[in-house]
Amino acid sequence: MTTAIVEAAGTFTQATKTPFAMWLDALRSGDYRQGTGLLRCKDQFCCLGVSCDIAVEQGVIPEPERDGNTYFYGDGSEECFLPPEVFAWLGLDTSDPLVGADGARQFVTHLNDAAGLTFPEIADLLEATFPHLMTATPAVTPTPTV
């Protein structure tokens, strides 16, 4: 049996959303209250904290440890930046990505905490900076040739 790639309905399986796309969807959803300074404090999240929450839901990292109102992710030491497991899962190579265009790049923590951008605005900048992380390569279903 050989594998043929045919452009017919049902040949390609629907690719699941990438972790990065799931994060941006969550930032745009309105389901998270925006906070500053920490990944999560009480019921408020930094833009990076939203990705940590999704990573917990997806089983990438364990539930966060909690000290009062502050949540610690990953190995229990990250309260301000992405744990390595999360930034790798998202397809990033840093705990605080730089975004922007025309050479004016800013860390997302600065945009969230100091510049006052909203989650949807940050999501737009992340998508513009990392468009290759938005889509997964579709899986091909083997089709017998005759």
Rank of each mutant, 00 (worst) to 15 (best):
L126P: 04
E78T: 12
A136N: 08
D43G: 04
V6H: 00
V108Q: 09
V56P: 01
K17L: 14
T13Q: 04
L126A: 08
V60S: 01
Q44P: 03
T70E: 09
C41L: 13
T145P: 09
E79R: 02
P131F: 05
G103S: 12
D75L: 14
W89I: 11
D93G: 13
G10M: 02
F81Q: 08
F119W: 13
A21N: 13
T109R: 08
I54V: 15
E63F: 03
A114W: 15
P83N: 12
D102M: 13
Q58P: 12
P131Y: 14
C47K: 12
G116I: 09
T2M: 03
P120W: 10
D25C: 12
D25W: 11
S51M: 02
D53W: 07
E85D: 11
Q14N: 01
T70S: 01
I61A: 05
P144K: 11
L27F: 07
G30P: 07
F87N: 11
A21Y: 02
L39M: 08
T16S: 04
G91Y: 07
N69M: 05
D25T: 10
P83H: 14
F130M: 15
D96R: 10
I54S: 01
T2I: 10
I122H: 02
D43E: 10
F107P: 08
C46W: 06
T137E: 15
L90M: 02
S77A: 15
P97L: 08
A104P: 09
T109S: 13
A15R: 10
D67S: 07
A26P: 01
V86K: 06
G59E: 11
H132Y: 12
L38Y: 04
R28H: 11
D25K: 07
T36Q: 10
D31T: 13
E121V: 15
A4I: 03
P62I: 06
N112M: 13
E7G: 04
G103T: 14
M134E: 07
Q34H: 08
G68V: 10
